[in-house]
Structures are given as C-alpha cells and as structure tokens.
Design a protein around this nucleic acid. Sequence first.
RNA 1: GGAGAGGUGGCCGAGUGGUCUAAGGCGCAGCACUGGAAAUGCUGUGUAGGGCAACUUACCGAGGGUUCGAAUCCCUCCCUCUCCGCCA
Length: 431
Amino acid sequence: MIDLRLLEKDFPAVSAQLSLRGVPRDQLERLVGLLDQRRRQVGERDDLRAYINSASKAIGQLMAAKQLVEADTKKQEVKDKKEALLHLEDTLRTLEEQIHQQHLELPNLPAPEAPRGTSEQDNVILRTHGYDPANYTQPYRPHWELAEQWGLLDLPRAAKTTGAMFTFYRGQGAKLIRALVHLGLSLNSERYTELIPPHFVRTETLTATGQLPKFAEDAYHLPADDLWAIPTAEVPLTSYYRDEILEFDQMPQCFMAYSVCFRREAGSAGKDTRGLQRLHEFHKVELLKFVRPEQALDEHQAMLGDVERMLQVLGLPYRVLDLCTGDLGNSAARTFDLEVYAPGVGRWLEVSSVSHFSDYQCRRGNVRYRDSQGKPQFAHTLNGSGLATPRIWAALIEQGQQPDGTILLPEILHEFMGTNRMGGDESCRRF
RNA sequence: GGAGAGGUGGCCGAGUGGUCUAAGGCGCAGCACUGGAAAUGCUGUGUAGGGCAACUUACCGAGGGUUCGAAUCCCUCCCUCUCCGCCA
C-alpha cells in the first residue's frame, strides 16, 4: 500500500507518479474526498464516545451513592447518544471499507530511477553478458525435442495425470532440477538464512505481498480450508515478520527459500507455453531481504549481483533489463529482470525478477523496524528469484546441446550430476 | 477427529461488570548514591488515529453481541498446550 497521508499532502506529485502506471487522476481525487469525510466522522465519533465514557463513570458513582433516580435519567441520556453513535459507526465502517478496498488496489509508486514507459517495449537493456549472435548461426533444437530424445521430461503423462502446463521430470532431467536448487542455495548460504516455507497460506498472507485482491484468479485456492497455494516463496517470506517490529541493528534480514510455486497463469494459456517456458507448477529458490529504506538501493544492487553470479557460473548468456514504469509489477517500485538466451526457442527467457518494493508490502503486512530514534517505521522489502528452475533447465539443455544431441553441462554441476553430459545413453530413453 | 486447559504490555503475571487511564515483578533508560562498579533509591518506559500543545479515541488472540458501562458475561473464529484416536 502507498502512504495515504502522502497522497493527501502532496497530491500532484503522487498522482503524477501513479499516472505513469495508468491510475486515473479522478480516481485518486475521489479517494481523497473519502479520506476527508472519514476524518470528520472520526472526530464526531470520538466526541460521542468521550461523552458516553464519562457519563457512564458518573452513573457508576451515582449508583454507589444510591442516587438511583439521577442515575436513571443519566442512563436515558447515554442511551440516546449511544443510538447516534451506533449509526455513525455504521456509516463510518462502510466508508472505511470503501477506502480500504481502493487503497489495496492502488499500485506502488514507481521509484524515481525507474525508466518511464508504457509497455515492455520501453524497458531498458542495462547490459548483456556472454551473448554473441555469431554463436547461433547454425540451427539449435528446442529443449522439448532433446528432452524427448533422452527421456528427460514426460509432458504427455503429466497431461494425463494432471493437465497441460505440468510436467514430470525424469532421470537426469529430474536430477538437474535438484542440482539447480542445490546450487542456488549453496552459492548464497553465507549471506542468506535458509527457510523452507509452508506452501499454503491464508488470505491475509497473499494480500500482504499484493497478489490479492486484484489477482485472485492467478492463484490456486483450496476452498475447504480457505488456503491459497503460494505462487512464490516471496509470499510466506514477506509475512514472516508480519505485525512485528524489528530492532534497528537487526536490519537487513536476508532469507533464501526453496519452494514449489503454483500459478494458474489465467489468460496466458497457449502463449509461449511449449516445453518448460510456462508451467503451472515449478521449483524455485527465492531471495528476500527486509531492509531499512537507506539500505535499499545498495542491497538491491547486491541482490542483483547475487543472481547474476549464479547465471555466470552456469555459463548462460543473459541480459539485465530495467523495467519501465508501465511494465512494473503492481507492488514493485523498481525491478531488474534477468533473461537468459535459449537458442532452441530463439528467445530470451525471463528467469529472475529482482525487485525493490519500497514500503508497499510492509504496509500491507505491517512489518516495521525501529529507526535510530527508536520510532517504529515501515521496513522495505527486496526480493529476487534465486533461480526459477524450468527456464534455466531449458536454457542449459539448449545451450549445452552437441551435434550428436548430447548435452554438455557447465562444470559447476559436474560433481553433483556425477557426469559432464546428459543423454547419449539409449537406455535412458522414454518408452 | 474426540475431551480438557489456556491466550493480558519487551517478558513473567494479577485482575470474573463501575477511579482498569491494567496491580506487582523482571527487563530497559535516565537521575541520585560511589573513586568506579554492584547493591539500593527515585523517575520514566507500548502501538495506532484525531488535534499535533494540553487533550482525546481505540487496542487485554480476532470478529460480533448483551449493558448506561466489558479484560471481565454470551456467540463465532484463530492459535497454543495436555490426553486419546489416526497417520508419513
């Protein structure tokens, strides 16, 4: 959530920033009107309550003094005031509900450094690492073909048991997922505390990160228990400190978590879904930090470096995009996307988003820290995919492919995989 | 799933309808005492909203209700613990 006081105090600036993300000005004007109305009604309500409180105390004293007639008169007075109070509380509740809903649906303010723009066309490529188009003059086969040849995936049987956009990983293909998860955690274990989160969360938890209320149809919901399957470990991790106040010198708090991620991908059926490009269920290592505002810029860059290092040791060509204001996720103030080049599909695949959420998520989740004066302030959150395995998996298969169809693995994975290449053994073929 | 007990400030803990604006203790901070410290004494010590000063309102797991008045009584839910059952 954004700061509503800031909206009132500096309306032109805030509405200009939000217009960069397509929030119309008159919507914000209406909200400010509601806030004004609330302030007046809260004042009236508190006056009524103050009267009732003191009168009730007086009644107690009258009754103790056995002045029952006076007490009864006073009681009737309070009863009338109480009726007015109940009515006022009722309208106020409706008003606050309205404000709350509108507030929840407002996106975050983009960081001033974020490039301006309206769509992904306007994203800025900051740098490209290890990519040379001259390497890709001969045809590369897509990962689903190679996976089929060596039995690394079983998409048809996953479709049978579960449905489209799910997969069985098989043999060395399954082991490669484990290797990637292991790598993502072990490369970062000195700087981040490992957590394994619950994979189902309450509605409040999914609201804190910003998926609810706007994006309910993107998440799997279990009505019998009113729980949601997590779309990313960011969700339980961001609520880890919900309703808590952290000490000044406890910051930053850095966590990493392996989890399975579940996404309904409503509206994207059939779009770039061949092979592992888009799955309903995948495995991911997530990095997350709670920081003080003044730490955020440096920690954001450090996290970006942590993610880039993983791509570098895997030897994957990648590029870093600075997302423009129009392409930022709802909760983010600034986002760097990392894309690896997958020559088989001939596309850059997004494998990580490293975002700064300013205090947007911590307001929703009420995560605070004590500043140097000891006053509670909202913390900032940062998070980034440490490794989203399916697309990394796909890129490794496509990048490593040899003329004979076998797949050379980057050296960092040799020890874990127990081999330097995948495929080549007809016995591993699927049947 | 069944039966029972419980949830009060940073922590422990008293409080079963009316100065609860929540006792007391621990912790923490300041001051005094001291050569310095310990011990001791005094003072202070939550969060949020409104005025931004005095003041005022809300918060005793959450939400609703009863009442002139609720930490206290009633209802629903959440969580913790104990025992039983089931189970990887």
